[in-house]
Design a protein around this nucleic acid. Structure first.
Length: 416
RNA sequence: GGAGAGGUGGCUGAGUGGUCUAAAGCGCUCGCCUGCUAAGCGAGUGGGGGACGAAAGUCCCCUCGAGGGUUCAAAUCCCUCCCUCUCCGCCA
């Protein structure tokens, strides 16, 4: 949610933002709604003030006066009731509409409509020349490391079993990542993966992307699609001293996604599955410093991919392709030999005050309280990194060999 | 899952229908006092929103776990939900 004051103080900024994001929103209607809501509120508060004054008079009035005053009070009470109901309705109407206004994009985000307008910032690492590269699924199945066929019998499509050294590699990768992040001041965290609706609402996944989320109906809980949700909500309703910012967390969790509307996309292997594990970075930070923090998070993501010897490119996501909560977003795409393409393996966003306002998270210093900024970024999307590792290090004989450095991180030098 | 107790400001804790404009204490901030520190004395001390204003500010509303209800009037009475604690049962 963006600051409703903008309607009064800088409506041009919202207009420009809607244009940049290529959206169609009736701002005039919203502005009028806001004005009438304020007017109603003012009337309602005035009347309530009168009612309270009268109440005090009644308390100290003589028996005789009381009868007359009570009659008067009764009438006011009715009016207060109906007026405050009306005010509440208007408020709700306004906020239902306001909540749909996306975050103001950063002025440095490239303006564009679709992912084709995303801007490549750099390419790092040289893809190896692999003749007739196998897919990660072919490699994994041949070596007995991945089984999606049986998984589909048990759980349906888009699930997998991982076996043997691939499991060992996963644990070593997670351990390596958490160690690195811990050294950089990110507090390792195992967050809940079942959350209440408010956490999803506060992070901006609800109401827009509710069809991507698994729901546990009996208990009104939802499975998170990323630990960003439970990490962001960690400091809900808190006021954090600016001296203690930034607060950085590295959350390790399983992620659950329904992948609705992706039928036919990435149907093979473990690239797009309903359940995967991920280490996620999350920062609560001084509003003045969130741009720096964003670059910092991106740099860490790059460092990890370099350590893992995966060729990648960095993409600055364009305004039309940004989610509602992001002001700016970088994706990193790893080279996938079997597709001869770079594919997304990390994503980091500066959501500025958008999530923090919804979750009511503030920071204070001598000048008072302000909404803080939140940022998130993928440190390690395990499944997709495993894909990149298998495919980029495959050998013509179907085995996979890692360099000595990489082998040290993974705890495995060769898969055969 | 069963039985019980309870949720009040940064903390402790009083308050069972009307100056609650939430006592008191602790903590914190500032001042006085003072070789220094402590004690003592005095003042201040939550959050959100609105109206007016260039601003400083002035006035007002909301907020006693959350949401409803009763009433002229609710921290206080009623209902629903959430959370915490104690005991029993079950359990990795």
């Amino acid at each position: 949610m963006i600051d409703p004051q903008l309607l009064k103080t800088n409506i041009e900024a919202i207009e420009e933002n809607i244009r940049k994001r290529d959206l169609n929103i009736d701002l005039d209607k919203l502005k009028h709604l806001d004005e009438s809501r304020r007017a109603l509120k003012f009337e309602s508060e005035k009347l309530r003030s009168e009612q309270k004054k009268l109440g005090k008079e009644i308390a100290s009035a003589s028996e005789k006066d009381k009868v007359i005053l009570l009659e008067k009070a009764e009438k006011i009470s009715d009016k207060v009731k109906s007026l405050s109901e009306e005010t509440q309705q208007k408020d709700e109407e306004f906020f239902d509409a306001w909540i749909k206004i996306p975050n103001i994009v950063n002025s440095s985000s490239p303006v564009g409509k679709t992912d084709e307008d995303n801007k490549e910032i750099k390419k790092v690492g040289e893809p190896k020349n692999i003749k007739n590269p196998m897919t990660h699924l072919e490699i994994g199945e041949n070596l007995g490391l991945i089984d999606v066929e049986r998984a589909s019998k048990i759980s349906g499509s888009r699930f997998s079993y991982l076996f043997g050294d691939l499991v060992k590699i996963q644990f070593n990768l997670v351990s390596y990542t958490l160690n690195k992040l811990s050294e950089k001041g990110f507090n390792p965290t195992i967050p809940p993966v079942l959350v209440r609706e408010n956490a999803l609402f506060g992070t901006g996944f609800f109401p827009d992307d509710s069809d991507q989320v698994y729901e546990v109906q009996n208990d009104d809980l939802f499975l998170v699609g990323t630990s960003e949700v439970s990490l962001a909500a960690l400091h809900t309703d808190e006021i954090i001293d600016m001296k203690n910012l930034p607060l950085r967390y590295a959350g390790y969790s399983t992620c659950f996604r329904r992948e609705a509307g992706t039928y036919g996309k990435d149907t093979s292997g473990i690239f797009r599955v309903h359940q995967f594990d991920k280490v996620e970075m999350f920062s609560f930070c001084d509003p003045e410093k969130s741009n720096e923090e964003h670059e910092h998070i991106l740099a860490i993501e790059e460092e990890i991919l370099k350590d893992l010897e995966i060729p990648y490119r960095v993409v600055d996501v364009c305004t039309g392709d940004l989610g509602a909560s992001a002001a700016k977003k970088y994706d990193i795409e790893a080279w996938i030999p079997s597709q001869q393409k770079y594919r997304e393996v990390t994503s980091c966003s500066n959501t500025t005050d958008f999530q923090a306002r919804r979750l009511n998270m503030r920071t204070k210093n001598e000048d008072g309280n302000t909404i803080l900024h939140t940022l998130n970024g993928t440190a390690l999307a395990v499944g997709r990194i495993l894909i990149a590792l298998l495919e980029n290090n495959q050998q013509p004989d179907g085995s996979v060999t890692f360099s000595d450095d990489l082998g040290t991180i993974l705890g495995v030098n060769k898969l055969s």
